[in-house]
Design a protein around this nucleic acid. Sequence first.
DNA 1: CGTGACCTTGAAAGCCTTCAACTCGGGTGG
DNA 2: CCACCCGAGTTGAAGGCTTTCAAGGTCACG
Lengths: 246, 246
Amino acid sequence: MAVQEALRVVAERIGSLPQPCASCDARERNFCAALSPAEMAEFARTMSEAALPTGGILFHEGAPADHVMNVTSGAVKLFKLLGDGRRQILGFRFAGDFLGLSTGADYVYSAEALGESRVCRFPRRKLDALRERYPNVDRRLLALSIEELAGAQEQLLLLGRKTAEERLVSFLILLSQNQVRRGLVADPITLAMTRSDIADYLGLTIETVSRTFSSLKKKGLIELEDTTHVHLVDRDRLEDLAAGFA
Amino acid sequence: MAVQEALRVVAERIGSLPQPCASCDARERNFCAALSPAEMAEFARTMSEAALPTGGILFHEGAPADHVMNVTSGAVKLFKLLGDGRRQILGFRFAGDFLGLSTGADYVYSAEALGESRVCRFPRRKLDALRERYPNVDRRLLALSIEELAGAQEQLLLLGRKTAEERLVSFLILLSQNQVRRGLVADPITLAMTRSDIADYLGLTIETVSRTFSSLKKKGLIELEDTTHVHLVDRDRLEDLAAGFA
DNA sequence: CGTGACCTTGAAAGCCTTCAACTCGGGTGG
DNA sequence: CCACCCGAGTTGAAGGCTTTCAAGGTCACG
């Protein structure tokens, strides 16, 4: 199976890069923020950074959840599959984001690199030990988890009740906010993902996504420099659309 | 506004019932499980149980999130609204379930009683104090939060990629599992919610929900004793349907 | 310069929604 | 007591938004 093969490749790459990930302790969107520099240094020994090619698999749904990880560069998509191959992307994670927590023994979704990316992995057992020793870690993970839940609930509203146009506009605004959160500009949005990924995130087809981009452009609400760079022309109108004010 | 009026009614009812909720410390699906009986007794003074009529509002999206709560009897629906009134139900909570956590100052969704229900409320400030003193509380809340997130992600797959029939079947199976989790029988499912609630949970209309019930009945996959009691005839086939094996 | 991945656009089809009519059961008031 | 009303649910028919099927365009790459 192609997935198993990819996993093996990833495992090899990870094994070949034993150095700790220097950027983790400076990040605000992962659990490391709960640790002091000294604690961080002690923990760094058990971490390792891995390089992933485009399409590289971080882990697959149903596989033993024995690592958690931070994205240190690039971007990652999280997704679930149905029996006949239909795919739903749950979300995208960018540099500084944390992923991989699970209460059960296995991952409940798959994760794959959008472009060339790097992730900092560490054993779940070590994380559990850390949680025992430093209560702040649980507090931090809880805050992250609640934030993630709120994001998923917003996406439930999108998938259950919004039209194609409202979905795409909501997505663009979310990406814009995401860029601000990462210290980038709000306005020219850079799409790290393909139309296919966008479609699977918004519960649409690539054709509908493409058509909706064209329609928004024709209405003068957005401008497309090229397929990966979007300019939000009428932000207020777009916000209203995303919020469902018909 | 009707909502504000309902909130006022709820507030009055809560104020009139200052006694602690005896069932909380025996529950497995709320944070109380992290406390010893002694700790629980000490904390119980700050709790109060409230009776809610059908349709009673627990809290509204955007209101200050100054309480968390356990459902002690009955059932509750959590939902979000779009600007023009479209509604998406995020989930249902039953006796023993916990709700109301938020990282920000406000609730990010609304909560309303399905039928006559009781909830045990306590101040968020008190909960924060408890988290400071007992690290187990954060651990417990984290586990609950991760479980809730996994449920939301499963629902994203449902809303984004499943057909009407697959959605309804998935919902029935979820309810069945829920009943088992609450110590009830797996098979005759009792629907505590209306067709309208089911529709808003599944991202459909009431007509489609009704038609799909009829269709499943005609196929011999389920039986409807009355509108609120469903018997799963061919469980294996239903499981396959829900998993998207066309 | 051929090839393939990604994207766009058009036309037809389909699943679900919208609109509408009808049934059923419970509560109410004459 | 029972006609009446109303909410909840079911079913039919038409319509619409998105999908499916199909074709063509662009660009990177070997």
